[in-house]
């Protein structure tokens, strides 16, 4: 039995307090999603599943969830193909602009989303793409490509370069080498990147905000609902998002690229 240590206790207490600060608001949302009352105040008088019922009736919100999911799936799929191909190219070849390119692809991840959103808003109409879901999908895909690229590229950098050479020496074609040697090695990075991409797309606001026209994505719909006044079904939908995020996170920690920064 260790003796009581004031300093250790303080650190532990502080750590716990911070953890509480991070989780308290989210717990509140989850708990209050079962509040039967319209006003979110303390204490809760009655518990009920009422707002989940209201939620199921809210067609606009459900449509926006569907739209978000589809954008996420589509954006992730395209980003995986283009991003992985690009990572492969950058891994295999050296070219003058490589350093420059490595920095460019970091921009959409590091720059404030509002900048990217407005840049796209200003330029897309010149390409004949007016604000619409199409524009939103392109916007999402752009930063998802960058995300996949950085993640997969990071994995490539840690790969044993001789593996592929060995495969080639043993007479396999580049195509075979890719499928039999390279892909299995980057598989987990790809799975991790796609989960992260999907979650980020599902949550994206700043870029979407400027490119959206008629059909809202889920976060934009929630934002609009909040702007029009607080409705308690936001608690319910938030709880559902919370659970989805939790599952995605657990999966991604299992597969993910832990050594690289995910942001």
């Amino acid at each position: 039995m260790k003796k009581f240590d004031a300093l250790n206790f303080m650190t532990g207490f502080l750590a716990f307090a911070v953890m509480f600060f991070i989780y308290f608001p989210m717990l509140i949302v989850v708990i209050y999603s079962f509040n039967a009352d319209t006003v979110n105040s303390f204490p809760i008088k009655h518990f009920s599943l009422k707002w989940y019922g209201v939620l199921i009736q809210n067609k606009t919100l459900l449509t926006s969830l569907k739209i978000s999911a589809l954008i996420g799936i589509f954006g992730t799929a395209v980003a995986l193909v283009i991003g992985t191909m690009g990572a492969l190219a950058m891994h295999k070849h050296n070219f003058k602009l490589k350093r420059f390119f490595e920095r460019i692809v970091l921009l959409p991840i590091t720059l404030p989303g509002i900048l990217t959103g407005i840049a796209m808003l200003s330029f897309f109409p010149l390409l004949g793409i007016s604000i619409s879901l199409t524009a939103v999908v392109i916007g999402h895909t752009t930063f998802l490509i960058c995300l996949v690229l950085t993640q997969v590229y990071a994995r490539f950098k840690r790969l044993d370069p001789y593996l592929e050479e060995a495969a080639a020496d043993l007479g396999s074609t580049p195509w075979q080498t890719f499928w039999k040697v390279t892909l299995p090695n980057i598989k987990t990075a790809i799975i991790g990147a796609s989960l992260l991409s999907f979650t980020l797309s599902l949550d994206e606001i700043p870029v979407t905000f400027f490119l959206i026209a008629r059909d809202n994505t889920l976060p934009i719909e929630i934002y609009t609902m909040l702007r029009r006044g607080i409705t308690p079904e936001v608690n319910a939908i938030s709880t559902i998002i919370f659970i989805i995020s939790l599952i995605a996170l657990i999966l991604s920690v299992k597969f993910g690229e832990r050594e690289t920064k995910i942001i």
Partner: peptide, 16 residues
């Protein structure tokens, strides 16, 4: 985990 939870939900939580 909070990184994965919707931005809008976290902002909203503070509102209530």
């Amino acid at each position: 985990l909070p990184l994965w939870v919707s931005y809008i939900v976290r902002a909203y939580a503070w509102k209530i």
